[in-house]
Design a protein around this nucleic acid. Structure first.
Lengths: 145, 145
DNA sequence: TATTGTTATACTCTATAACTATA
DNA sequence: TATAGTTATAGAGTATAACAATA
């Protein structure tokens, strides 16, 4: 659960421990990729969602699993940096639609590229066959989630 | 990189995307396991590290990759809840040693148990052979990290 | 009345800079 | 001088509760 907490056999981790440690490794790579552009992981997720959507604040809360008041602050900070914009909804005058700006899209692409590079380094010790097997297994886990 | 950002083929994710999504799934399971006990992930990691160590504040910063001032706050909050304690170091009068209390150890065990249950649910659709293969591959990734 | 979004408030987490005490 | 730790301060991120505008 915590990286090097194993006093027993370091090379005989359980599946649960291995997946937990792997999640920290991947999140670390993501954090490094985003930090270089002064972005947090949650801001990067926001840009990723807006890449091909123009949701309302409310829908954004659903995607990110956050309270609407948290979304207000998140979008405030992104908008202040010129990465996203708010527009009035045409059908519901209470609602606000959020869209990505060109600057936001460009920044999101840069972060994604850097993340892919970090992940390529992490997976570089696997053979192509192993990579394919890992992808298949990971996708099987995601399917039911 | 972000959960359902794929407009192309949902079942043909790249390895990088699959690992990224998997990391969010696992971190989500961890967050759920900890939230039930009013603990954050970082507080849980702290308890995990202290399970079999009695580091100084400085060493703790190394384990967690945080600035010393962040460690001060982290330990402050855990100590206020009776989960850890500070003791003076015997060899260096500038240093402070941090150890876990019985309450902290107990809470850490409860969270670990709940996390394992969540992870068991997530991996329940895999066969034993698949689980073993996934563990092997994940460990190969961790080895070089 | 119910829903959408914002505001006020509070807390955790994190970092930088300045400081104290010890080495 | 250098190191260990704390304090002061600032900002991101999150939630709850109260509110205004609209449905």
């Amino acid at each position: 659960m915590t990286p090097p907490t194993d006093g027993a056999q370091a090379n005989d981790l359980s599946l649960v421990d291995a997946l937990a440690q792997l999640s920290f490794l991947v999140q670390g790579a993501l954090a490094e990729a985003t930090a270089g552009h002064d972005l947090s992981i949650i801001q990067t997720r926001l840009l990723g969602i807006l890449r091909d959507r123009e949701p309302t604040m409310n829908e954004l809360g659903g995607y990110l699993g956050l309270d609407k008041s948290s979304i207000t602050g998140l979008v405030d900070r992104a908008e202040r940096r010129g990465l996203v914009r708010r527009t009035a909804s045409a059908r519901d005058r209470r609602a606000v639609q959020v869209s990505i700006t060109d600057a936001g899209r460009h920044l999101g692409e840069q972060v994604a590229l850097k993340f892919e590079q970090r992940m390529a380094a992490i997976t570089s010790r696997l053979t192509n066959a192993e990579r394919a097997r890992l992808a298949t297994l990971a996708i099987r886990l995601l399917d039911r989630a």
